[in-house]
């Protein structure tokens, strides 16, 4: 069973339905207590970094997320949910992120179409179990104006958009993807399945 963190900033319905499509039961959680008992977690998110962090804090979910990740509960952040795992973002200067991944979030070069909207390649690290069964350089759906710039070696997926950026990251059982697996058709389905089956590998 997968728990989706609900904090008023995310495409929660689509994530829940995508899990249903792969036969996974999904529940929504909006209290720290619910997070503590979760088998695994997904942190979705769309919108602005600052507003999302405020919502997490207001519900006490920021501390709860940090606690369960340290305890070893698998968690995957999606899109803004992935960016929130970092220390800070250009989008909301002065607002602290969850800081579970070292590094910050930066805005794409102004010469590009921003936001990036559409399908782009992900080149993944061959050893990564999150991409098992997915063809190298497959397409995933992106909708982002910002990209993550980690300062530690956590990149398991790379994407080119004006520059090469880390589109998927992992440290232990903590994962993050910049793209939307719930909107990435077959490849997204496989990636979500892989996340759910991590424990069995």
């Amino acid at each position: 069973m997968t728990t989706i963190i609900q904090y008023g900033a995310g495409n929660i319905f689509s994530v829940a339905q995508a899990l249903k499509l792969i036969g996974e039961e999904a529940i929504l959680a909006d209290t720290p207590e619910q997070l503590e008992t979760a088998e695994r977690l997904i942190l979705p998110g769309v919108g602005a970094f600052g507003a999302a962090m405020k919502s997490l804090r207001r519900a006490g979910l920021d501390e709860a997320i940090i606690k369960v990740v340290k305890k070893g509960t698998p968690l995957m952040g999606i899109c803004l949910g992935y960016q929130l795992l970092f220390e800070s973002s250009d989008e909301s200067p002065g607002i602290q992120g969850l800081g579970l991944f070292k590094g910050c979030v930066r805005r794409f070069n102004a010469a590009l179409r921003i936001p990036q909207l559409g399908w782009n390649h992900v080149r993944y690290r061959e050893s990564s179990s999150l991409f098992t069964g997915i063809r190298q350089d497959s397409y995933f759906y992106f909708a982002n104006s910002y990209y993550t710039a980690p300062t530690e070696d956590i990149g398991i997926g790379h994407t080119e958009y004006g520059r090469n950026f880390i589109s998927a990251a992992q440290r232990g059982k903590l994962f993050g993807v910049q793209f939307h697996p719930e909107k990435s058709q077959g490849c997204g389905k496989q990636l979500l399945t892989n996340f759910i089956q991590l424990e069995e590998q």
């Binding site: 689509s14 339905q17 759906y141 909107k183």
Partner: peptide, 11 residues
């Protein structure tokens, strides 16, 4: 929209 998002994983 609800029924579509329940059937396909496409934007």
């Amino acid at each position: 929209v609800r029924r579509t998002a329940s059937a396909i994983m496409t934007p």
